[in-house]
Each structure stands twice: as structure tokens, then as C-alpha cells.
Simulated scan of single mutants.
Amino acid sequence: MSAKQHAPATLRNRDPIAAVLAQELPARGRVLEIAAGTGEHAVFFADRFPALLWQPTDPSPEALASIAAYRADYGGTNLAAPLLLDAAAPEHWPVAEADALVCINMVHISPWEATCGLFRGAARLLGSSGGGPLILYGPYIEAGVETTASNREFDASLKARNPLWGLREAEALDALAAQHGMARSARHALPANNIMLVYR
């Protein structure tokens, strides 16, 4: 039985995400993907950006096994072996440097402490890379922007599964970034009521 897991949303969102990444990622360097999940995004983006070394990470052993299984079928040389990384514990991250961080669909499906750790770790790693980006993808609540019914329902379902989960306010992320010497540099609207927020 294959260790590969499949996230149906990946096939729908990978091209729009890649279009934004093409604008925001450096031409070369190491991209650290936090909470890489199944590994399907990692393989797709490594293939799309061959000049970048893509480093997937996840705190779940099942996810790491899935990433490794997809990587085994990848023909390129720029997809690193997955690493165990818990965003909530940035002092124990197994990575000392990165030129960009990418985090897809983690912020709302994890405790707030994971997002706090994400920004703390990003500030440490990116501070020495000359201002590389932290790029987040997912659904967010924004001041002055009406939250769609589908996102409100999604938020309620997340909180029913785990009261520590739920859609976060973009302005709360901005404030968190400021605490670590970072600021939002871009907002990109994507399909299905998702957005990408970029911090530097």
C-alpha cells in the first residue's frame, strides 16, 4: 500500500499559487516549505522552479512518508528529502538558513502558537538572507472585506473539529509580523476565496 496521500484541492490551487510564487520567490536559493502535507505541492513547485532547491517539512510522520513517496518518483534533483519540523517550536527547526518560506493552508488548521512560531522562525531565517519572503496561502478574514458564506461555514466547521483552529484575521498576522520586524509587502487574491499574503 502506497504511503502517498492525496489532497484534492492541490490540483485546483497549484497553478494559481505557482503564478504568484513566480512573482515573489527569488530566482535562486533555498525555499523552505512549512507544513508541506501530502508533498504534492512540493513536487509540483520543485518541477516548476528548477533553479530553486525546495525543502519540504512537516510535523506529521504520515505526511513525511507521503512526501518521501512522491519525491521517490520525482525526476529532478532540486527536491530535498523531507524534514520533521514543528512550526510552533522554531528554536528546534532543523534548518539554519533559507531564502524564502512558503506555508500553504496551515495557519487556519493549527493552533495560533504554530503561526506565532512560523513568524518567529521566518524572521530568524530570512533576516540573514537579505529580505526573502514569507508567503502564506489560505482563507483569511479581512477588515473591510465581506467574509463569504462558504468561508464562514468553513470557519465554523474547523472550530467544531478543534476549538484552537479557525480562520485568522489578516490584520492579526500583520501585527504579528511587525513584532518580528517584518511587514506585509503584497496581497494576492486567488480562486475559491483564498488569498496569498507576503511578508518581508
Rank of each mutant, 00 (worst) to 15 (best):
K4D: 01
Q5M: 13
H6G: 00
P8L: 02
A9F: 08
L11I: 07
N13T: 13
D15I: 15
I17Q: 13
A19I: 03
V20Q: 15
L25V: 09
E33Q: 08
I34F: 01
A36C: 09
T38M: 09
E40V: 00
H41S: 07
A42L: 08
F45H: 12
F45M: 10
A46C: 06
R48F: 03
F49R: 07
P50V: 05
P56V: 02
P56E: 03
T57W: 03
T57N: 04
P59C: 08
I67A: 02
A69V: 03
A69L: 02
Y70I: 01
A72I: 01
D73F: 00
Y74F: 15
G75V: 04
T77K: 10
N78I: 02
N78W: 01
N78F: 00
L79S: 04
P82I: 13
L85F: 10
D86A: 14
A87K: 11
H92S: 15
P94T: 10
A96Q: 13
A96C: 07
E97S: 14
A98C: 06
D99P: 11
V102T: 08
I104V: 15
M106T: 03
V107H: 01
H108Q: 11
P111N: 12
E113N: 13
E113L: 14
C116E: 15
L118K: 09
R120P: 02
A122P: 01
L126D: 06
G127T: 04
G127N: 11
S128L: 06
S128I: 05
S129C: 11
P133V: 08
L134F: 07
L136E: 08
G138D: 05
P139K: 10
Y140K: 07
Y140A: 12
G144S: 08
G144A: 10
E146P: 00
T147V: 14
T148V: 02
A149I: 09
N151G: 06
R152A: 04
F154P: 06
S157I: 03
L158S: 04
L158D: 01
L158I: 03
R161Q: 11
P163D: 07
P163H: 03
L164N: 07
L167V: 13
L167G: 08
R168Y: 06
R168H: 10
E169A: 14
E169N: 14
L173F: 08
L173N: 09
L173Y: 09
D174K: 09
A175W: 02
L176F: 05
A177L: 13
A177Y: 05
Q179K: 14
H180R: 07
A183N: 06
A183I: 03
A186K: 10
R187H: 14
R187K: 14
H188D: 09
L190A: 09
A192I: 11
A192R: 12
N193D: 14
N193P: 13
N194H: 07
Y199N: 08
